[in-house]
Amino acid sequence: MGRRRRKLLFGVLLLPAVAAGALWWLTKPNPWDAAHWQGLGEPDVANGEQVFWAGGCVSCHAAPRAPEDQRLVLAGGRTLKSPFGTFYPPNISPDETAGIGNWTLAEFGNAMTRGVGKDGEHLYPSFPYGSYSRMTAKDVNDLWGFMQTLPKSANVAPPHDLPFPYNIRLALGGWKLLFLTDEPRADVNTADAKLARGQYLVEGPGHCGECHTPRNALGGFEEGRWLAGAPNPEGEGRIPDITPGSKSIGNWSASDIVSYLETGFTPDFDTVGGSMVDVQKNMAKLPPADREAIAAYLKALPAS
C-alpha cells in the first residue's frame, strides 16, 4: 500500500469520526459555567412569585383539572398534545423524590435556561426553555426561592409518549443547535424601559411565542413570523396573531390589551377562551406596570 493510499484510507476512516465528534461536541448538553449561578444571594421570594405568575408554571404543572385551591401543587401529569407526540409535564413540587426538592439552584437554572436536566440530559422544548433562556439569573434564583415555599406532591407523572424519532433525546441537541437562542426575537427600542420590560416578559418568562408563533417541520419558529398566529397544537382552531397586523386584536389599543389581560374581557365584551383562559388568570396576578409593558411591546411590534 502506497503512502498516499494509506493517507486516503486513514482520511476516509477518520473523517466520519471527526464529523461525529464535532457533531457530538456541537450538540451536547451545554449548562452554564458554575459561576453563573453563584453569588446570587438570598432569593427575593416576592419577586419570585411574580416571575412564577409571569411564567405561568401552574398552567402545565398543576394536576389536570386541579380545583382552584390546589393549583399551587405542581404535581404534573396533565397531557400536552403536540404534532410530535404527547408530553406529560413532570412533578416540579419541592418533594425530594417525586418532585425537584433535591435539585440545586444550578440544576434548576440550567433546566430553565439551557434545557439541561438534573442528570445532564437534554430536555424536550415542550418545556419552553427556548424562551426562558432569556431570563436573568436573579429571576431564576428568586423563582427557585418561591417554589421552595409551595406544597409537596408525591405524584409521579407518566413519561412522555413520543413516536420514533422524537423519542431520541440525543437528537434534541440538534434542535438546540438550530433553534435555541437568547437573542431578542423582535427589534424594539430597548432604550425605553417600558418596552424593554415588555420584551423581557413576552419573549422570556411569559413565553408567548411558544403558542403564538408558527413552527416549521422541525419545531423551530418560522423566520419573520414572530407572534403572527399559529395552528392550535392541541386540535382545531387557531392561536391568534397578536401583532398590530392581527385581524382579531390589531385594532385594540394598548389599554384594551391591558384590560383584557387583567379582566379577561375583550373591548367588545367577548371573553378570553381556550388555553388563554389560564394564561389570563396568571397575567391578572402581575403588577399593573407589567401588563402595561406587555401591551406596549405588542403594539411596538411590526405588523404581521
Binding site: 398566529g229 382552531g237 387557531r238 391568534p240 385581524k247 382579531s248 378570553v272 377562551g273 381556550g274
Partner: peptide, 12 residues
C-alpha cells in the same frame, strides 16, 4: 370564560 375555555375556538 370557563365555557369559552372548552367550547369556543378562535379561527384567526
Amino acid at each position: 370564560s370557563s365555557c369559552h375555555e372548552s367550547y369556543r375556538l378562535k379561527k384567526d
